[in-house]
Simulated assay, not measured.
Amino acid sequence: MRHRKIKNTSVELTELGFGAAVIGNLYRATPPDDAATAIEAAWESGIRYFDTAPHYGLGLSEQRLGAALRQYPRDQYVVSSKVGRLLVPNENPQGIDSEGFVVRDDLCRQWDFSRDGVLRSIEASLERMGLNRLDVVYLHDPDDHWRQAAEEAMPALAELRDQGVIGAIGAGMNQSAMLARFLRETAADVVMLAGRYTLLDQSALDDVLPAAKELDKSVVAVGVFNSGLLSRLRPTDDLKYDYQDAPPALVARARAIADVCAAHGTTLPAAAIAFPYAHSHIINVTLGMRSREQVTRNAELAGQPIPEGLWDDLRAQGLIRADVPTAENAHGRSPRCL
């Protein structure tokens, strides 16, 4: 699997990444053995970039990921985690987490983008994972905390990066406008863009992607299935879009895209994974995977060639925006490692 470098840093990511939120029991419990074999399958598939966060399962994702990676040489993989939510004792536990993870709520999340909060969060993440360093650190969902995130958290991360403690820094969010601000107004090297550059939503073309191109910075794309609507060969009415029931109009549009994909001899999920790579500053697509079967399927989808004319036909039919960049090769990827 090819690698791409986070621009202006020494950190290289495999083009496909392993998103570890689901092994933190997102929405439903993932047995420990399934989580371990999923990471093992990812390694066997050539994936060397693994993303997690304290938020995911109140630390469970970090614990499981660290334990599974311990058998591999540390210099052969890249790990990213996030700051902004400290895990603290829960003084009023109800028995189960209230933010979508099937775990006990003995801990709770506390927003904190202060310098001290950043340092404490990183130290706790390293302890949970049993690692001596993080390669990439993102500010996690700072939507309502711009000032503290930009003026305290990001400078703290920049200091750690400049000292060589961290390889690259950035922010990860479900919106694109503020990510553009982080690229333009802070020391961020890379942003993690969730759901805003997909076959169903290209709004990132209005802000964060032009900023990345202008400033020669990097973007990691996540949420490329938009919570599931783009994950099936033929979308059904009961699928989710951005964590909610998918509106009928979007289901119909996803089916229309699937029809065009089929006419070109490919599939909707394969096209959904390949689509972001057509933009020169998107260096990685990271997918959440909770089992060996999911890893194998996604790695196979990511390896499928995409006919060059697919994007042209989708543009011509108004199914993607007219200003979506043309893929540089048939797979929608740059022909060289960046």
Rank of each mutant, 00 (worst) to 15 (best):
L205T: 03
A271F: 12
W111T: 14
T30L: 01
D116H: 01
L139C: 15
T326G: 05
E300D: 14
V136F: 03
I47E: 03
A221W: 06
S176L: 01
P248R: 01
T236G: 14
V102S: 05
D34P: 00
G223C: 10
L287K: 01
L16E: 08
T30P: 02
G100M: 11
R64I: 13
R255N: 13
V208P: 03
E293L: 11
V220I: 15
T236E: 15
R70T: 11
W111R: 12
A35D: 06
L107H: 06
D323C: 10
K217A: 09
A278F: 04
N329K: 00
Q202T: 15
E127V: 14
L215Q: 05
P235G: 09
L65R: 00
H279N: 10
R2W: 10
D162F: 01
Q202S: 13
N284V: 12
R297K: 09
E99A: 12
Y241N: 07
L239I: 12
A35L: 04
E308R: 04
A249C: 11
A158L: 12
Q163T: 04
H331G: 05
Q202L: 08
T30V: 15
R85Q: 09
L134C: 06
P325D: 03
Q294P: 09
R133N: 05
R2D: 14
D135E: 14
D144N: 13
P305I: 09
R133E: 12
L131N: 05
Q110N: 01
S61V: 09
R147F: 07
L13P: 00
W43M: 05
S291C: 09
V78K: 00
N8Y: 02
G17W: 04
V79A: 08
Y138H: 14
N132D: 15
A171D: 04
R234C: 03
A150D: 07
A221E: 02
D33S: 13
H331I: 00
S291H: 02
